[in-house]
């Protein structure tokens, strides 16, 4: 789910960046495959075909299977392939699924806000205050968290945030608190903290790129026209960084909504998200169709939110220019 979500995220980002839907459509559309009428196109198709085949086999086909499954039913190990909307009815009527889905959206939203708010100053610092020679070193350092596996990082957060963890024993040792803090582990807060850390580089890089693209003479021009540093930031730097911020939001939001490992490890019972329920349906309850239904609903939610976000961004950019 996580990987699926992320690939979707990159693609959305691509289409956003190039401002064209063709890339999006050509990945799935069959028409373009058959419309080869000259050598150039043939060469182009040859170039993209490994990726295309890969995408169709590992993305489109599983997606289609999930979609199909959501209209079937399963009784222990036997699959009933007759079309039904029973799963959707169940998914909509049982408050448990709704709670989990809304919690997923809520946590992903929180992670997005926290990550992007924390990422912006770092991206700004590297873009505006680091000498050009050192910038690549800084970007390299920012990727250090990726040197260890995602799973190990989540476990480390468990150690840091735990009842007798690094943070609590440190705070008690310093005499700042009398009892260990309990609101930082085995709940949604812990999920937000952990995911915000994990996705920080993903958020920093797009913002950094959009800040790098700002012509420095625009900053000088704003000051030349009488604006203070703060007003220059508000009126020039920030509006011009919006495309990067939007990309960051999507890159963080889309994969976190389907994240499964982090809520499982640090979320406790009240921090579980929709992906955990999907796993339970598929593997524990042997109800793949309902799991598939929940997966489809999660994907639809992400798509709707992402599209609304992109739409608002487009509208903002249009009204600005």
């Amino acid at each position: 789910m996580c990987i699926l979500g992320f690939q979707k995220g990159t693609r959305l980002h691509l289409s956003l960046a190039r401002n064209s839907r063709k890339i999006w459509v050509s990945g799935l559309g069959k028409r373009s495959v058959f419309k080869i009428n000259n050598r150039d196109q043939l060469r182009g198709m040859a170039l993209v075909s490994p990726t295309l085949i890969y995408a169709i086999l590992l993305l489109a086909v599983p997606l289609a299977v999930i979609f199909l499954f959501s209209f079937w039913t399963q009784d222990y190990l036997t699959l009933d392939r007759s079309f039904t909307l029973k799963n959707y009815r169940e998914a909509f009527s049982d408050p448990l699924y709704r709670t989990l889905l809304f919690r997923s959206l809520w946590v992903a939203g929180g992670v997005t806000v926290v990550t992007v708010v924390l990422a912006f100053p770092i991206a700004y610092f590297v873009s505006f205050h680091v000498t050009p020679k050192r910038k690549s070193l800084w970007l390299f350092l920012i990727t250090i968290p990726f040197w260890t596996s995602y799973l190990i990082r989540v476990f480390l957060w468990k150690v840091i945030l735990g009842y007798n963890g690094v943070l609590n024993s440190g705070l008690i040792g310093l005499g700042l608190v009398d009892e260990p803090l309990t609101f930082i582990l085995y709940n949604a807060n812990a999920v937000v903290i952990t995911l915000a850390h994990a996705f920080a580089p993903f958020a920093i890089l797009p913002i950094f790129v959009s800040l790098e693209k700002i012509d420095r003479s625009l900053i000088e021009a704003a000051q030349d026209l009488g604006e203070s540093k703060y007003q220059t930031f508000r009126r020039v730097t920030l509006p011009l960084a919006v495309p990067g911020i939007v990309a960051s939001c999507l890159i963080v939001f889309i994969p976190t909504i389907g994240d499964y490992v982090t809520p499982r490890l640090v979320g406790g019972p009240n921090g579980l998200m929709i992906a955990n329920m999907i796993q339970v349906q598929f593997l524990k309850l042997n109800n793949a169709p309902l799991g598939a239904t929940l997966a489809v609903l999660a994907m639809v939610s992400v798509t709707v939110i992402a599209l609304v976000f992109i739409f608002l961004n487009r509208k903002y950019l249009r009204s600005r220019s």
């Binding site: 003479s217 625009l218 000088e220 021009a221 000051q223 030349d224 020039v236 509006p239 011009l240 220019s321």
Partner: peptide, 22 residues
């Protein structure tokens, strides 16, 4: 006296027209 407080205005080589504004 910083640039924003000086009685000077500049036309930049790249013109520095704000791309997000009309």
């Amino acid at each position: 006296v910083p640039a924003n407080k000086r009685p000077t205005n500049m036309v930049f080589q790249s013109y520095a027209i704000f791309p997000h504004l009309s």
